[in-house]
Amino acid sequence: MVNKQIGSAAEAVADIPDGATVMMGGFGRAGQPVELIDALLEHGAKDLVVVNNNAGNGTTGLAALIGAGQVRKMICSFPRQKDSQIFDERYLAGDIELEVVPQGNLAERIRAAGAGVGAFFTPTGYGTMLAEGKETRHIDGRDYVLEYPIKADFALIKALKSDRWGNLVYRKTARNFGPIMAAAATTAIAQVDDVVPLGELDPEAVITPGIYVDRVLELPRNAPAADNIAATATAGSGSTAATAGSAATAGKAL
């Protein structure tokens, strides 16, 4: 029997070794696998190469991992933000490497890794600093830059629901990097609000088929904000079961 469910966040990340390349889903707070990142912080793996759109916000999650000195290199599109002070300090002190990648190239390089594409030509960044030293080609009247895939040893992502086969459905803009990172990593770990019985997810609504997912961790969204529930209820389910949490109300709308 296939059962990818795992009991705890600590167990989910326990085999991530020093020096691993780890993708982390999320754009801002949406889709950020906070508990898995916290477990990685606790686990203590170091010299990590982390792939994320940003380089940490505030003092928690990825920012805390960087602050603890566990990250050797960041691959991201937008490190500098109002609340990226931990990364900023480390970077300016020369303690952390940075590879800035245009956001669409970041996404496509991750996608290419999962899809087995060896490299691709993209017009993005042609003639800019970020294409310096890269191979270029003129194709059908346009200039392109050769970009290589970004693979990872592990991906930590967040979705709304899963079943024991690892099929995933997401919620709103929290989907962001989840599907492509799951495919690009040797081991993809998803934290979800809810692991439902096999057969309960509508196959038409599955966004990430379980083939890409290795471990699922159920973490009910704790103490969802009242406004969150109000918003999802308005969106279609009409559920008044506020105590059931946002995951349940949103799930009915799928």
Binding site: Q81, S84, P102, Q103, N105, P123, T128
Partner: peptide, 16 residues
């Protein structure tokens, strides 16, 4: 020299 570059989606939008 001391600026931290952050490109986001700007280059993709500019060409796309």
């Amino acid at each position: 020299a001391d600026a931290i570059p952050a490109v986001g989606g700007a280059m993709d939008l500019a060409i796309g």
